[in-house]
């Protein structure tokens, strides 16, 4: 019968209309600014720099300014200047650090390649997305102070991944320590006071506190 297809279609729309009042399968929208969808754990937006300690973010950055991410970044949005001197990182090891670390988020495409290539687990993907501004240049250019976020924040947004990363870092640190110990034992005469570079003072809880390098 002519028109039966039309009537059948109207039946479907009626079903959806009625269903939208009681069936969550048929009402899938949210009133955005008031209601927010839960972000999946893997969700990624612009990168941030992981620091070990929230109170001293600049002193405990994991980044050593190796510039691998700067080279690998496809749209070239990262800009790094590394330091000429060294200072102790969170574990007390003397390290080069980034004097300047900028990410131009107007260029960044959130592809995560910087995270993948970083050998130091120093750069991770953030989850903030409400970052619209009126200024095209300055506000979208994030410097290292804006980029640094503590490890606790990383645990908050990517719990599974962060736990894996922490376990891996701990294992690496232990292995390095044992290696250093093994290297140190055959010649006990050398260095009664451990030099800050070779056998690093262990306690990671007391990171850069008092760790100012000798000038």
């Amino acid at each position: 019968m002519l028109g039966s297809g039309l009537l059948q279609g109207l039946k479907v729309t009626a079903k959806n209309l009625v269903g939208s009042f009681h069936d969550p399968e048929r009402l899938t929208t949210l009133e955005y600014p008031e209601q927010k969808a839960k972000l999946p754990e893997n969700y990624r937006n612009f990168p941030f720099l992981v620091s070990e300690n929230a109170t001293d973010p600049m002193g405990t950055l994991r980044c050593v300014g190796c510039q691998i991410c700067e080279k690998e970044c496809p749209p070239q949005c990262i800009y790094i200047e590394k330091s000429k001197d060294k200072k102790p990182d969170a574990t007390g090891k003397m390290q080069v650090y980034p004097v300047v670390f900028d990410i131009d988020t107007s260029v960044c495409m959130s592809c995560q390649i910087c995270v993948e290539v970083c050998p130091f687990e120093a750069i991770k993907m953030d989850q903030v997305f409400e970052i619209a501004t009126k200024d095209r240049f300055t506000a979208l250019l994030l410097d290292r102070n804006q980029l640094a976020k503590p490890n606790s924040y990383y645990h908050e947004i990517h719990p599974t991944e962060a736990a894996e990363v922490d376990a891996r870092l701990l294992a690496e640190r232990k292995a390095a320590e044992e290696k250093a110990k093994a290297a140190a034992t055959p010649k006990p005469a050398v260095a009664p006071t451990p030099s800050p570079t070779a056998t690093a003072p262990k306690p990671p809880e007391a990171p850069a506190a008092g760790g100012t390098p000798a000038p």
Binding site: D56, G59, D85, A208
Partner: peptide
């Protein structure tokens, strides 16, 4: 035109 930070910045 950025400022070059002092080398000891970030340490207490």
């Amino acid at each position: 035109t950025r400022a070059t930070p002092a080398p000891k910045e970030g340490t207490p």
